[in-house]
C-alpha cells in the first residue's frame, strides 16, 4: 500500500501540476485519514510490535505528504532514515527489551483522560490559531513543482553549512553516547 501510494503520488504530482488539484486533494485526504487512523491505533494498541508497524504506516504517509508538497528529497530521506533505519532500531528496541509478542495488558497509564485532555487542549489551541492565522491562505500552484535536490544541496552547503557541520558532530556524539550508555560492564 505504501509503495503504491508513493508511486502514485510521485507520478501524479508531476502530471497534475498542470491538470488541476482535485485529485491531489483526494490523495491528501486518503493519506491523512490513513495516517491519523494509524497514529491513533499506534498509541492505543496493546501490542508493542503492532504499534511499531502502525508507526511504519504513519511514517510512510508522512513521506507521501512530502511528495505531495513537492519535497522529494525529504520524502526519500524519510523513507531511508525513518522507514529504514529508525524503524529497525525501534524493532530492535522492542526485541532487546523482550516485549511480549502479542497483547499486553499493562501498557497504558491508568488516567488516560489526562492525556486525552492535554491532547485535545493542545489541538484546540493549535487549531484555533492556525485557522485564525492561515484560514484562507493557499499554497501557490507553482510551488508544487518539486524542489530540485540541487537546490536543497545548495542551501545545505552554503547557507546552512555551520548547522550541517554541527549536526555531523551531534551524530558522532550520539553514536558514542549510545555506545557508552548501552555498553555492558
Amino acid at each position: 500500500m505504501i509503495a503504491s501510494l508513493l508511486e502514485i503520488g510521485l507520478a501524479q504530482t508531476q502530471e497534475l501540476s498542470s491538470v488541476g488539484f482535485d485529485l491531489v486533494n483526494v490523495f491528501f485526504g486518503l493519506i491523512a485519514v490513513v495516517a491519523i487512523a494509524a497514529a491513533l491505533k499506534m498509541v492505543s494498541t496493546a501490542n508493542v510490535v503492532h504499534a511499531a508497524l502502525y508507526l511504519l504506516v504513519v511514517l510512510s504517509s508522512v513521506a507521501a505528504v512530502y511528495v505531495l508538497l513537492g519535497a522529494e528529497f525529504a520524502a526519500a530521506t524519510q523513507v531511508l532514515v525513518y522507514l529504514g533505519a529508525i524503524m529497525v532500531l525501534m524493532l530492535f528496541g522492542v526485541m532487546l527489551t523482550r516485549a511480549k509478542i502479542g497483547k499486553e495488558t499493562d501498557l497504558d497509564y491508568e488516567h488516560r483522560w489526562v492525556g486525552v485532555l492535554v491532547g485535545i487542549l493542545m489541538f484546540a489551541v493549535m487549531g484555533y490559531s492556525l485557522i485564525e492565522e492561515f484560514g484562507d491562505q493557499k499554497i501557490p500552484n507553482d510551488n508544487y513543482a518539486p524542489i530540485q535536490t540541487e537546490a536543497v544541496a545548495n542551501e545545505i552547503f552554503s547557507t546552512y553549512i555551520v548547522p550541517f557541520e554541527a549536526l555531523s558532530v551531534l551524530l558522532l556524539a550520539a553514536l558514542i553516547g549510545a555506545v557508552v550508555v548501552a555498553r555492558k560492564d
Binding site: 497509564y109 489526562v114 492525556g115 485532555l117 492535554v118 487542549l121 493542545m122 484546540a124 489551541v125 484555533y128 490559531s129 485564525e132
Partner: peptide, 20 residues
C-alpha cells in the same frame, strides 16, 4: 516523567490559550 510532561504540555497550551 509523565507528570512533568503533562504539566509542561498542559501549561504551554494554557499559556498560549491565555495569550490568544
Amino acid at each position: 516523567v509523565r507528570n512533568y510532561a503533562t504539566l509542561m504540555f498542559g501549561a504551554t497550551a494554557l499559556i498560549v490559550a491565555v495569550f490568544m
